[in-house]
Each structure stands twice: as structure tokens, then as C-alpha cells.
Amino acid sequence: MASLKSLHIMHARPAQPAHSGDTYQPPRKPGRGPRLLAKRPVRPGDTFGVPGQGSSALTSLVTIAALLGLWFAATYWHWVKPLFLPSPQAVYNKFIFVATQGFANSTLAEHTAISLLRVFGAFALACVTAIPVGVMMGVSRFARGVFDPPIEFYRPLPPLAYLPLIIIWFGIGEFSKILLIYLAIFAPLAIAARAGVRSVSIEQIHAAYSMGATRTQVVWHVILKSALPEIFTGMRIGIGVGWTTLVAAEMVASTSGLGFMVLNAAEFLSSDVVIMGIVVIGFFALCFDMLMRYIERVAVPWKGRV
């Protein structure tokens, strides 16, 4: 009788796991597929909550929608006069008009093209010159003594302060506009490159020397690569300063450009053109910033993990 009862219990109860560390899982019913909402594996740091971790895309979309809704409400119920804040429909209609008919003898595409050429031309020149200067300032005290005083002297100055001097020296041509934007981008990019070099771990440098690396190899393969996160941050900051300086550069003797269009429209109280120009500038600045973030993720995959 006891043997029959024990046999009955063995058939009624599923077999226990062989190892004590295993967890028991009931048998899956026939025809039932895998769970669609299965939990993902926990990444290091998720248990305690890493500050700032996670995607903020949904919050950004809600914020943009809320700002647009506030803009619609403020213009629909006339909280602000149209002279100071035109409606989104008016700005969109002006965008179509300027894109097709033009403003100040140039279409929107022509204004945008000349501004992009000025900003990114100055940005490319700054990357070619400022990054090597910043790296030299970080690895050589002689270079730091030569370049640090002039950079730290003019860096806090607003571009409008030395714009008259640039005009006196180089005239009112295209070169002076690009030079003004270049100087505004050069200082933060060089300082970011120097900070990136100074943040390199000394253990990495000693390890490279112990494996027979030369000074040039240490600078190229260890210091420069370790400084890339700071350099990318400086590039993002520099291009933002470049777009800010664009308006100042196009104040003098300009007949085209987004900054010129905004300033010219402000003189005639065309707030719809002003807002439209601001939106276009912000759009291209945002696109470039997102591009730089993508390039940084590809070129510096170890950022935040080491």
C-alpha cells in the first residue's frame, strides 16, 4: 500500500530540479508559444539605478508638443499681439513664401546655403588647427606657455567686441565673416582638446611605454584616443558658438544669409520672418548635434564604460 501511495505522489508531483540553485518552472501547456513580455536581462548598474540612465525621447516629444500647444493657444486666444508673436500658420505661410518667392533678393535655399558655407567652413578650419593646438598644449609645457595666454585672453570676449578690429584689418568681405566665426569656435575646441589630453590616465601611458611604444605612438594611440570624448564635446560646443556668431558676422555688409535675413526682417518688424529664420537655424544646429552624437557613439564606443 505504501509503495502504491508513493508511486501516486511521484506521478502527481513534477520532478524537482537536479541542482539546488535551479528554479522550478511548471511545464508549458501544449500549443503555448514563448512569452512576449519576457523580462530583459539586467545590465550592470540597473539594480541600483544609474543617474540619468534611460531614454528621454518620450519626454522630449511631450515637451515639444506642449510648447507647440502653448504657442497655438497664445495666438488663437490673442494672449499676445500678432506683431510680437505670429501664429504657427503665419510662420508656415511665410516659410513657403520665402522658400518660393524669396526675401531680400534671395530665396530661403540661397540664404541657408551661404550661412552653412560660412559656419561649416569656419568649423572645418577650426578642427584642423584647434585640435592639434589643444593636443600640443596638453603634452608640451612649451606649447601651453605659447598658446594658452592669447587663447585665454580673447576667449571671454564677445565676438562683437573684436568685430570692428577684424573689419579694419581685413575689410568687409567674406574672409572677415569666416574669420570671426573661426575665432569663436577655435578657443572652446582647443581648450576641450587640452582638457581631454590632461584627463588621460597615467597608468595607460606607463603601460604603453612599458610595452616599447615611442612618444609619438603614445600620443597618437593612447593620448589622442583617450581625449576623443572631450574633443567631441568641444566640437559640439564650438558649432553652437559658431551659429551664435553667425548673426554677428552677417551684420556688416551682407546681402544674404540666415543671420542677415533675421536682422533685416527685425528692422521692418516682420516677426514671422524672424521666427522662421530662428527655426531654420535651430533645425540645422540640432541636426548637426545629432550627427555628432552618432559619430561619437561609433568612434568612441567605450565612453562611459571604462
Rank of each mutant, 00 (worst) to 15 (best):
I151C: 02
Q101R: 12
L125M: 08
A122S: 14
Q204W: 10
F97S: 15
A192D: 10
G196D: 04
C127I: 15
A90R: 12
A187S: 09
G102A: 03
S199V: 07
W169L: 03
Q204I: 05
L179E: 06
P156A: 01
R118T: 10
V91N: 03
S199M: 08
R198W: 00
I172S: 15
L85N: 05
I172L: 15
L83M: 15
S115I: 09
I202M: 07
G138I: 11
A161Y: 04
I202S: 08
P150M: 01
S87Q: 01
Y182Q: 05
A187Q: 01
R141H: 07
H206C: 06
I205S: 13
L108S: 06
P132H: 10
I191P: 00
V80K: 06
P150R: 01
V119H: 09
S140N: 02
A190N: 07
I168A: 15
I168H: 08
A130Q: 12
G134F: 00
L85A: 04
W169H: 02
I178T: 14
T107S: 11
R155W: 00
F120D: 08
W169R: 04
F84E: 14
P159M: 04
T100N: 07
L180E: 01
P82D: 06
A104H: 09
L163C: 09
P164D: 13
Y92V: 09
K177D: 03
S176E: 05
F142S: 13
A190C: 11
A161T: 12
L180M: 09
L165Q: 07
A90N: 10
F84T: 15
A90P: 04
